[in-house]
Design a protein around this nucleic acid. Structure first.
Length: 268
DNA sequence: ACCATTTGACCTGT
DNA sequence: ACAGGTCAAATGGT
């Protein structure tokens, strides 16, 4: 991964190396927290220590999110163009809703608008496992695909505020192979349509372990899975999904078997 | 009439 | 060439 590798001034070089060092430290912290989980697995596997196990997994999640934020900042501040907010002309055809009757009778064919920027930029991307697909946002489904080697189709959603507020975040949802009551939900990008105060409240409640006010189902954050430059640890955690199947999130919500989870990640 | 979902076509990256 | 992501016409519900 390259940071501020253009420009060449001393200050930008120093800034770049600071960022690199920060990322290195965060990645190390994440890895060490994971190792601590392994070392304490016997202790944390007992039911009375479940909250400690949850806390430690959350620590790993905090490191993951911090790395995500830095990656997002890098994507926004490098000289790569940011993803364009759809302008009126670009989206004119779909925004101007023609009447169904007119469209059907005259067979009006709306010329296809090609988004050539697709997949062109690195996005923050993370996957969670959850028994429910609802979250704090409203999503509009825009596609569904059969995915090779999986038995369940993948559904694609975009934020309902894509057009009115230019919110570009998308997610895809797929039932996991091992447990089809669990969904693997991958978020691509960050909401720009928010309501940050509410999100912060949720995060705050989550980190303080206040389960009574937790708005979201408990989830295990698997880190960035598909972004360019995702850490090796993220890959390992991502790999744990395929190896462990989808039962992780569900078991953590009720009866989390840390030993099983660590056994499936013993190569850490 | 409006809105959300479905689904086949089309696009890009590998 | 293929897989996966997105678009937009078609469709169905209210």
């Amino acid at each position: 991964m390259k940071w501020d590798d253009e420009g060449g001034s001393d200050s930008s070089l120093r800034k770049g190396s600071m960022k690199a060092a920060t990322i290195e430290e965060l990645a190390r912290g994440k890895k060490q927290a994971f190792r601590l989980l392994s070392l304490l697995k016997d202790l944390l596997s007992s039911p009375e220590n479940q909250s400690a196990a949850e806390l430690l997994v959350d620590v790993v999640g905090c490191f993951t999110r911090a790395l995500d934020f830095l990656e997002l900042e890098r994507a926004e501040t490098t000289d790569q163009p940011t993803r364009p907010v759809p302008d009126a002309d670009f989206r004119a055809c779909s925004d101007e809703r023609r009447s169904d009757l007119e469209r059907r009778e005259r067979k009006i064919h709306t010329p296809r608008k090609i988004n050539c920027q697709r997949r062109a930029y690195p996005y923050s991307c993370r996957t969670i496992l959850s028994p429910k697909i609802e979250d704090d946002h409203i999503w509009r489904k825009y596609g569904q695909k059969e995915i090779n080697g999986t038995k369940h189709p993948r559904s694609y959603y975009r934020c309902i505020h894509k057009h009115d507020r230019g919110c570009q975040v998308t997610r895809h949802v797929q039932r996991t192979e091992k447990d089809d009551s669990i969904f693997a939900i991958t978020y691509v990008g960050e909401h720009t349509c928010i309501d940050k105060s509410r999100d912060e409240e949720v995060i705050s409640n989550h980190s303080t372990g206040s389960s009574s006010t937790l708005h979201r189902p408990f989830f295990v954050d698997l880190g960035p899975l598909a972004t360019e430059g995702s850490s090796p640890l993220s890959s390992l955690m991502a790999d744990s999904v395929s190896r462990y199947g989808g039962s992780l999130g569900m078991e953590f919500a009720s009866e989390f078997k840390l030993e099983d989870w660590l056994a499936s990640n013993k190569d850490e």
